[in-house]
């Protein structure tokens, strides 16, 4: 592959730095010319729908997949030329939670530790500690194949941390979990903040909002926007939404509302009117005048959801 360096300067103090990083599968461009910087100790979330290129990006950074263009540095090491050294510095929890099914959590952890060059004694101690932290001590010696999805995911994340890596990649860590298990994992991942550099991917808006220091919105292999949750929301700060819950919303009244305001969304007995510089009283009065009986009405804060919608032009369906 020809040496490819983008115009960007390499900054060795960054945990992850990509240079026009891209990967195609045949004619499909899965990741297109990605340029992101992740500082050490930062929790960076790649937020995007299925198929937007999140896993492909992680796989390239973990040296599992060769980029078809560009390159990246992980802890100052080139993923193309210094893959073996990069691997010694990273931990990954893949999107599909794959464990050694007939091994216990302890054995799974010890294996990962040993493969990451940790000596046996230390590996045993670290594994026992992590099993406890992850709340798996009661089942520490059971084979993992009978574990619940949440337990497996916790173990998978523990496996990404066992070697005390500098950079941790968590690919959709809460995918498919029930809200309670998700919440528990958020708390755990939140606790890691500041200690480790974490690149997390998700297609859950709240997850990125709750956990990430910075969010990169990825869509069709491209970064559409990048910044803190606050910064992203600022893009839509001048955009407001008035939400009205009402009875007696007839077709005629809805048609009238839709005819008067450019952005109207109806959801059962709820009408949302969005736009710039909305006049709350004018809107509620108008809705009232159509014969609808207003139960409640309020201004909604701009959300990451709206920011996302504005940035990508589509809704993120979880």
């Amino acid at each position: 592959m020809p040496e490819h360096r983008s115009s960007r300067e390499a900054d060795k103090s960054l945990a992850v730095q990509t240079f026009d990083l891209g990967r195609s599968f045949g004619s499909l461009i899965a990741v297109d010319c990605l340029n992101i910087d992740i500082k050490q100790g930062e929790l960076f979330a790649l937020l995007g729908p299925n198929g937007s290129g999140k896993t492909t990006t992680i796989n390239m950074l973990c040296c599992l997949l060769k980029p078809t263009r560009g390159t990246a540095n992980v802890m100052g090491l080139d993923i193309n030329r210094e893959a073996h050294s990069v691997k010694a510095l990273i931990g990954i929890s893949p999107q599909d939670t794959t464990l050694s099914e007939h091994l216990s959590p302890l054995e799974n952890l010890e294996l990962m530790a040993r493969l990451n060059n940790m000596e046996a004694k230390k590996a045993r101690k670290y594994s026992a500690d992590l099993v406890e932290v992850m709340g798996l001590q009661e089942r520490a010696k059971d084979q993992v194949r009978r574990f619940s999805g949440g337990m497996k995911r916790r173990l998978s994340i523990a496996m990404s941390l066992i070697s005390d890596p500098a950079v941790v990649f968590l690919d959709e860590p809460t995918l498919g979990l029930d809200p309670q298990a998700r919440r528990a994992l958020w708390d755990y991942i939140g606790n890691l903040k500041g200690e480790k550099t974490i690149l997390l991917t998700t297609h859950y808006m709240e997850e990125a909002d709750y956990l990430a220091d910075r969010i990169g919105i990825i869509d069709a292999g491209k970064i559409a926007a990048l910044g803190t949750a606050m910064e992203l929301k600022a893009e839509v700060v001048d955009r407001q939404t008035v939400v009205i819950n009402a009875w007696n919303l007839t077709v005629a009244s809805l048609d009238a509302i839709k005819g008067r305001y450019p952005e109207v969304k109806v959801n059962g007995g709820q009408v949302s009117v969005a736009g710039k510089d909305l006049d709350f009283k004018e809107i509620t009065d108008f809705v009232h005048s159509t014969g609808a009986i207003i139960r409640s009405a309020y201004f909604k804060e701009p959300s990451l959801e709206e920011a996302y919608l504005k940035i990508t032009g589509k809704e993120l369906v979880a």
Partner: peptide
């Protein structure tokens, strides 16, 4: 096939 190999491949193993 299970993807477990990918996990192993992210460790510095020859």
């Amino acid at each position: 096939e299970a993807g477990y190999m990918s996990r192993l491949l992210t460790t510095p193993t020859r």
